[in-house]
Computed example of a mutant assay.
Amino acid sequence: MDLRAAGIQARSAVRSTTESLVPIWHPSPNFGPRRDGLEPSLVVIHYTAMDSAEAALERLCDPAAEVSAHYLIAGDGRLWQMVREEDRAWHAGAGEWRGQKDINSRSIGIELDNRGDHPFSELQMAALENLLQDIMDRWGIAPDGVIGHSDMAPGRKFDPGARFDWQRLERKKLAQQRSFGENPQAAAMQSFRALAHDAGFTAEADDEVLLAAVRLRYRPWAKGPLEPTDLSPLRNTIRRT
């Protein structure tokens, strides 16, 4: 097959994945009703940290494991649904976002077949984008309601990890866009914590753990002590009221 034909075939595969969002129904027993009449206002993105999508699917549907998610996307773009969106899947655990706890009752969980140490495939990202758009339209979820597991549970969880392409979602308005100011103010931990809190990072964490969680979301390549550019991505993430 020549390169042109290979390119056409690849584009066709992406289209077929993104244009057809009928998930494979594979019900999990691990769910319950959403509490206090809550409806989804967040989407939490995870990686599975397992060797295959099939292994993750088995665990997410194992009653002994007591974990689940609403959706699972394989590396080749296959999409499974395990829990109805109206129900409360058990994917987020302890943590909080914007001062609110019980994230399971407030969110839809999406698991991505990835160990966390390699890039997410094009087919997988294309399927995720289409799924996110459908969910956000269906429930009226704004881009700032799409978060990573590490955002709401800093220091406890690290997914979807440093290899996840948040900027790709931001460009398509499927996640809160970062803002890099030309003249950021001098970095100070007090200012950083205030900005992080206003952006939604309200879970209890010391300075080092909070900095690591924010960097994992916005600047996963960054190392060392707090610097001015750590504040920049947070400046435009404050929810408009």
Rank of each mutant, 00 (worst) to 15 (best):
E208D: 14
L216A: 05
A213Y: 07
P233C: 10
S232N: 03
L195I: 05
P233T: 06
D206F: 02
L226Y: 05
V214C: 04
A203S: 13
P220Y: 08
G200T: 10
A196T: 01
Y218P: 00
R217P: 00
A212H: 07
W221N: 08
G224E: 02
D207V: 06
G224H: 01
L231A: 01
L226D: 03
A213L: 07
E227H: 09
E204H: 14
A203V: 10
E208W: 02
S232I: 08
K223P: 00
E227Q: 14
W221F: 15
L211Q: 03
D207W: 07
L226C: 04
R217A: 14
S232L: 11
R217D: 10
R219E: 03
P228L: 09
F201Q: 06
P220F: 12
T202I: 11
D206E: 12
P225H: 08
L231T: 01
T229H: 14
K223M: 13
E204P: 00
S232V: 06
S232G: 01
A194Y: 03
A196M: 03
A222N: 02
A222L: 03
V209C: 14
E227L: 05
E204S: 14
P225M: 11
L216G: 04
D207A: 11
E204F: 09
A222P: 00
A222V: 02
A212L: 11
A203C: 11
D230Q: 04
S232R: 05
A194N: 09
L210I: 12
W221K: 13
A196D: 00
P220S: 08
L210K: 10
T229V: 13
P228M: 09
A199F: 00
K223V: 10
A213Q: 08
W221L: 13
G224R: 06
L216R: 15
G200P: 03
V214N: 04
L210Q: 08
L226I: 13
A222C: 02
D206K: 09
A222Q: 11
Y218R: 12
L211H: 05
A222Y: 02
L231I: 02
A194H: 08
R193N: 07
L226N: 09
Y218D: 12
P220W: 13
E204Y: 11
T229R: 15
T202G: 07
